[in-house]
Each structure stands twice: as C-alpha cells, then as structure tokens.
Design a protein around this nucleic acid. Sequence first.
DNA 1: CTGATTGCAAAGGGTTTGCATTGGA
DNA 2: TCCAATGCAAACCCTTTGCAATCAG
Lengths: 131, 131
Amino acid sequence: MRNTVQKTMILKTVRSMMDHPTADEVYGKVISSCPGISKGTVYRNLNLLAQEGEILRVSIANAPDRYDFTTVNHAHCICSRCGKVFDYRLKRMPQLNDSDNKGFKAEDMNIIVHGICHECQMKESEEKERS
Amino acid sequence: MRNTVQKTMILKTVRSMMDHPTADEVYGKVISSCPGISKGTVYRNLNLLAQEGEILRVSIANAPDRYDFTTVNHAHCICSRCGKVFDYRLKRMPQLNDSDNKGFKAEDMNIIVHGICHECQMKESEEKERS
DNA sequence: CTGATTGCAAAGGGTTTGCATTGGA
DNA sequence: TCCAATGCAAACCCTTTGCAATCAG
C-alpha cells in the first residue's frame, strides 16, 4: 500500500467537501490540484480509502454512490427532485440484533430516507402559485 | 392501463416467490408460463406494479433490485457472500421526523443491513476447520 | 379503431477491470 | 529493483428506452 500523490489529494479533497460528493464530483474537484488524474484512479482510491476506514461510502439505490468525510454511521436522506444528499437526524438509530434474525450476523446498516428537500418544496409551491 | 397476459403472469409470479427475486429471476420463472416474453416487458411491468402498490421494489446499492410480494415497508438484510436477501426484524422501526431535519419532507425510508447469513457462516467455519 | 403494451435491440449511467507504463519504497 | 498504482479505454452489470408491430378495450 503506497502513498501516491493522487491518493493523498483525493483524501484531502473528500475531506474538504461537506456535501456528500459523488465520485464524479470528487474527480471534478481533484483534477485542479492533480491535473491529468484519471477517473479510474479516483474510483479506485475512493474504494481503497473507504476500505481503510478513512472515508465513508454511502451507497444509494438508483443514484451514484456518495462519499462522506465522516466515518461514523448515520442516516442520510436524498431529495427525489434535485438528488442532493443530506444527513438525516433520527431520534434514535435502530439497534442491530442478531438474535431475532435466524443467525444473520449483521455488520453494517444503511438507512436512506427518500423525500423532498426544503428548497425543492419552495420551488414547487412557487410554481403552483404562478399557474 | 390495460390488463395484458404478461402483466397478469408477472404479478402472479412475484406473488409466488417469497425469496425477494431480482427482475432477472422473475424473468427466468415467468418465461415458463409465458414463453417468448421479453426482459424489457418484465422490467416495465415490475415498475408499473410497484407504482400501483401491488408489489414492493427493494432497491439495494451495488446489487440488482429485488421485488417483494409484501408491500408493507420493513427492513431487509443482504448477505455479502451469497447475495441472498432476507427480511430483517428490528425491535422498532425508526420514526421519520421532519422537524429535526431542516424541512426535509420524508416520504419513505429504506433500511438495508449488510452482513453474513447463517448458511455462509457455517460454510466459512467448515472451511477453516478443513485447513 | 386507437393508443397502450409488446419484443427486440440498442443505449444508458455508474463503476470496474485489463493492460502496458510509471514511479514509490 | 520490483511490484503497487497509474492512465486509458474497453468491458461490465443492471436497467431503461426507441421503434415498429401487436392487441386489448
């Protein structure tokens, strides 16, 4: 496992982006500090960094994966209109319990809430008023 | 909205499969009662049926979508080894609450637990013994 | 009749992978 | 030196889509 310029810059870039960027968005930003870097390298290193526990990969069905500088597990929500992803605050995170689940050994839990973000709700009611 | 033979058979097939089949698995089964049906039709009708609320589409990151004859929302777990999907029983489903989340209007929640199923755990310990 | 639905095949998006080349330790 | 990491492009998987033909209402 080597420390390449590319890997270092990718990690630094993800840590500077607080808005759950996609691999493509990370690529778009890292290319300025690391010209000529390839998309494949970005994908490879994001995966490596996630495996090493440096960043969190947030997989969302029917949408590109996101990367999160925070590695503590928490719920996310995604807006069905604009596709933006936010942290979602739950009163309590549900507990994993293997005993009720036929010996399934749980290791990780992903919670994704689908809905409409505040901004898109505003836009929507504006559009309704106009018509 | 028409009632075609294909749509009827697809619904009947999903209702007969209790193991969270993928679109491809539904196709593999429906083709015997409906020879010559195309994969596109299966995808299209699974989507329609999910929209109509007849079945539940379970989207899982980095894995093909599954279809569930039960439409009440519940958590699922997927085995990282064999890819099988099961229902996952939680002590309590977390509550959606818009008030803590900057006006995000939550509509739906997906919970996926990743881990190893009982069968694969058994296989794994067998393999360890053998070596 | 007529437009919704089909079969087919091609396109699509996001991600991974094979390979020759490069470069860190 | 030597193998891990890179850049590039092609392959990959799952799903959707465009189109002419078909068929249910």
